Amino acid sequence: MIGERTSLSLEELVGRTLILQGSLSGMGIAYGEWFKANGVSISRSITCNNLLGQIGLAVSGLATAYLPAHCLNHLVEKGLLHKLSVTPALPKITYKAIHRSVEGDQFMLDILAITQARCDFSKWVIR
């Protein structure tokens, strides 16, 4: 849908149909505030809180999405997705895993140890 372009201005970005996360999502809130701070409103959007749904919509060419690059590089390499840079740059989003207190709960301590040893969000499990 964008040809060989690798960058868009903010005005060009908001002129496209965007896949956005809803207002209950930390990312949805962060980007909503970023668009507002940059004085733009979104006129065409699809709200989708499911990552696989967002990927499917973007791969189909129906809309533009902000997706985690590291785990989707294989789709970029296959030409199914294209990376775009936007000026001004989009804000970085940091995720944290939050859990209840595990003091004295050996099962939860074991789950946390497995999670810390095995979670690698730079890899995608679906090829």
Rank of each mutant, 00 (worst) to 15 (best):
L84D: 11
M1Q: 10
R5D: 11
L67W: 14
G53E: 02
P68R: 06
H70W: 09
H70A: 12
L52I: 05
L20T: 03
S41P: 04
K83F: 01
G56H: 05
G104E: 03
T64K: 00
R127I: 01
S41F: 11
Y31A: 06
L112E: 08
I2Q: 07
R127V: 02
Q21A: 00
A113M: 10
V59N: 02
E103G: 00
S85G: 10
G3F: 11
P68W: 01
L72P: 01
S43K: 13
G61A: 11
W34H: 05
L57T: 03
N49P: 12
V76K: 09
A65I: 13
L90E: 03
F35V: 01
L52Y: 05
H70I: 03
L51E: 02
R127F: 12
T17L: 01
H74T: 02
I93L: 07
A97W: 12
S43L: 14
S101F: 02
T115W: 14
S101P: 03
K36L: 12
L8P: 04
A97F: 15
R118V: 05
A30T: 15
Q106L: 10
I111W: 06
T6K: 14
C71G: 04
I111Q: 14
E12V: 05
L20R: 15
A113N: 15
L80M: 15
R127D: 15
T64I: 09
S7Y: 10
L62R: 13
N49M: 14
R118C: 07
I55Q: 01
G32S: 05
G15S: 11
C119W: 12
D110I: 00
S7R: 08
K36N: 12
S101R: 10
C119G: 05
H82M: 13
A89T: 08
T47Y: 14
S60C: 06
L84M: 14
L112G: 04
L67T: 07
L57C: 00
